[in-house]
């Protein structure tokens, strides 16, 4: 999977533009949470995951970023992306159950992914397989009780081959996480567990690399402080970027903005 190539600034920009193009051509929203998650996903796929490792996207509504990351490492092609969200596609709005070997589970109903990742990590241990598992959750998803069940389980079983990335972009479906059901700051709630917790800038490639590096004696959780709609000024930190698709004017404006950086 990984290219072992350290990504350059242009790689992130190109992926961001490709993501916007795919969503624009398909007339699909959910862009804000894809842009917040994309940088970390690119580093995970290019620089971290080995052939046996698994990535589980618990925040399935960021499937677009996952598809772009897979496209970026050559596991999906342009013709696949063209069918995103269209009839007879493999690339559903949330990760599908079958057809893409790099996607182990259908996700999209929040609160499943961390348990699936914990089970995968436990299975690796039981089979003496040294593979790693990475799971990305959203921040709003921690309102799901099952996510806490998974954390208790993963922490208790000392699943050191599991890393949890939290895309902490402060927004959820119908408001900010602080307004809807605040656990702010979420990392303080997690500190009480026996975990290796890091809080970093989720758009700083070097910070993400450092957080992912090395072995940890406990379950690793990396809180990615991210920006919803990252990289497109008129989408950043806006509730409507959770759902709304781009008009042509806004798509062109966004591309121009990314190109000017």
């Amino acid at each position: 999977m990984k290219t072992r190539t350290t990504l350059a600034f242009n790689d992130f920009s190109n992926a961001r533009k490709r993501l916007l193009q795919m969503h624009f051509e398909s007339g699909v929203g959910h862009i804000g949470g894809n842009l917040s998650a994309l940088d970390a996903m690119l580093i995970v796929f290019h620089e971290y995951l080995g052939a046996k490792d698994k990535f589980i996207l618990s925040k399935g509504h960021s499937a677009g970023a996952l598809y772009i990351a897979l496209w970026s490492v050559g596991r999906l092609q342009d013709q696949d992306l063209k069918l995103f969200h269209k009839d007879n596609t493999l690339l559903a709005g949330h990760p599908p159950a079958k057809g893409i070997t790099d996607i182990p589970f259908a996700t999209g109903s929040l609160g499943h992914g961390l348990s699936l990742a914990a089970g995968t990590a436990l299975g690796f241990k039981l089979k003496d397989n040294d593979a790693k598992v990475i799971c990305m959750t959203s921040d709003g998803e921690w309102q799901e009780g099952a996510t806490w069940e998974a954390l208790i389980f993963a922490s208790h079983h000392q699943l050191t081959n599991l890393t949890v990335l939290v895309d902490h972009n402060n927004f959820q479906g119908f408001g900010s996480t602080a307004d809807v059901a605040s656990m702010s700051p979420l990392w303080d709630r997690l500190k009480g567990f026996d975990v290796d917790l890091q809080v970093i800038d989720g758009h700083d490639p070097d910070a993400i690399r450092t957080a992912l590096s090395g072995e940890r004696p406990r379950l690793r959780i990396i809180m990615l402080r991210t920006v919803k709609g990252r990289g497109v000024s008129f989408m950043e930190n806006r509730m409507d970027s959770h759902y709304l698709p781009l008009t042509e004017d806004k798509f062109l404006k966004a591309i121009k903005e990314i190109d000017s950086l």
Binding site: P104, F105, S115, L116, A118, G119, T120, G123, F153, H156
Partner: peptide, 23 residues
């Protein structure tokens, strides 16, 4: 033999993931 605790939702998803590894 794993006592998954009083957390059935997690237990089922963990079971699915274990089964995916041919256990």
């Amino acid at each position: 033999f794993i006592n998954a605790g009083v957390a059935e939702q997690n237990m089922i998803s963990v079971a699915a993931a274990l089964a995916q590894q041919d256990l």
